[in-house]
Design a protein around this nucleic acid. Structure first.
Lengths: 204, 204
DNA sequence: ATGGTGATGTCACAAGATGACATCGCTCCT
DNA sequence: AGGAGCGATGTCATCTTGTGACATCACCAT
């Protein structure tokens, strides 16, 4: 039976994965990442250290399990969009902005402030972006896009998203992530357009 | 005195830093990164584990100490070039390709194959690219380029370099890194140029 | 020679990560 | 109902990473 359980979850302890995730977020915020031990996290979730390591690859992963959903939405959007490679990727990020991030600004800010506070976590975030990019590039290639254009469109798209995301999360900002993506995409086009067309923007 | 010692090196044990670096490279190649312990590395260099940690932040750093030189050359090149932001960054990478990488293909291939074999090392490589990008963007801003253009030009340039570098290192390739950079830069410009100008390149 | 200085070795230890094995609660089969 | 089987957890042991504290040792200037 197991009716409508979404992603191979628990029935033993109700949602061990989610509880550990929540406990980790709390503790990281309270004491910081380095000052939090895996045993602490497990204890707060009412579980054992060993169980944590069965559900998460390492301590950092507790903050990044949302990445799976992100990748799924992104890949699906790419597969369903019919446009030039770069435009396809940008469109996919627009969709992600609406579906996943739009109404989670507060949570995202907390998460991001934790990440900023730890080089280890920033490193892991980079890795997540990298595998995300790989998945998107693969989705693009599956549509018949050549390898190099797929990679370049993807990396450029990810860059746009990262810059837009950073602006969105920045304190004081109240713009919509979607709008920021569009703006940054336009700026990137301007910056990388063939030389000589934009008379000296970058001089002293 | 300390005459011509370049970067605060040793006189005690002759070049402990370099010996550890070499030992690490050897062992990583022989047994792989995970199967090599820091104590092993130190032992092969005739030193102690504790000494390793005084010279390198962690085990991974033994493979990435070259990054400092890379950053220096890149930043200097950016400071001295007078062109649009993206073109400036690309020019800087051309210089790096000639000065640093051109005659080190074999070493680079060994290093890269080790990195490919370990997620931890790939992660660290990403981080190095990230801080490299930050330094380049800062150099660009120091020339009067706005923050966002600086970041976008830098990230785009780094993307170009990464793709070109990957092609250069790939087995069977015999092209010059410099040429690959120019090619990929052109491809990126094509991919990110305003939509509608290149009738459907990315359709099924 | 003598004391200082910097590089190194020794020791101890918290925390991360993982393998081996015991348990416990649920589900299914008869 | 009753037990076999199974998956999720807990327990224990152990290795490795990374770091603090302290002892040494070679060299240098005075």
């Amino acid at each position: 039976m197991t009716s409508d359980i979404i992603a191979g979850m628990a029935r033993w302890q109700p949602d061990a994965h989610g509880r550990l995730e929540a406990a980790a977020l709390e503790l990281f915020r309270e004491r910081g990442f380095d000052q939090t031990t895996v045993t602490d996290i497990a204890a707060r979730a009412g579980l054992d250290k060993r169980t944590f390591y069965r559900l998460f690859g390492d301590k950092r992963e507790a903050l990044f399990s949302g990445g799976k959903l992100l990748e799924e939405v992104l890949v699906k959007a790419v597969a369903e969009t019919d446009a030039a490679p770069f435009e396809t990727v940008i469109a996919a990020f627009h969709q992600v902005a609406d579906e996943i991030f739009a109404d989670r600004l507060d949570l995202v800010r907390v998460r991001q402030s934790i990440i900023e506070g730890s080089p280890e976590l920033k490193e892991r975030e980079l890795r997540k972006m990298g595998s995300l990019a790989a998945a998107v590039a693969a989705a693009l290639r599956a549509k018949g896009v050549g390898e190099t254009p797929a990679i370049l469109a993807t990396e450029s798209g990810v860059t746009v998203f990262r810059v837009a995301f950073a602006r969105w999360v920045a304190p004081g900002s109240d713009a919509l992530l979607t709008d920021l993506i569009a703006e940054v995409a336009a700026e990137l086009r301007a910056v990388t357009s063939a030389p000589g067309l934009h008379p000296d923007l970058g001089h002293r």
